[in-house]
């Protein structure tokens, strides 16, 4: 089973990386970019029997840092 985990910064957390990318986009002449937040996509290939609880635990224990990040799990196939 292919699983995608999207890790993103929580809304209250400043994202210096996103801000730098925002500046770079403006530097390239793109207008109307209101905000940029940089996250991370992690693709997993796991046994079909892997439970939702186990996937959740993987995220909370390692893939995301719950102090600063949220995660979203998407099963691809």
């Amino acid at each position: 089973m292919k699983v995608r985990v999207f890790v993103s910064l929580k809304s209250g957390v400043l994202d210096p990386q996103g801000r730098a990318v925002h500046h770079a986009l403006e530097g390239l002449g793109f207008t109307g970019v209101e905000d940029v937040r940089v996250g991370r996509l992690i693709e997993l290939d796991v046994a079909d029997s892997t439970s939702d609880e186990a996937l959740d635990e993987m995220c909370r224990k390692l893939l995301a840092n719950m102090v600063i990040e949220n995660y979203r799990i998407e099963k691809v196939a």
Binding site: V13, L14, P16, Q17, A20, N65, V67, I68
Partner: peptide, 17 residues
């Protein structure tokens, strides 16, 4: 230590990059 949960908070990229 923060990642291990022994200390609170997190250490992020420096604000000035």
């Amino acid at each position: 230590l923060t990642e291990a949960g022994l200390l609170p908070g997190a250490l992020m990229r420096n604000a000035g990059q």
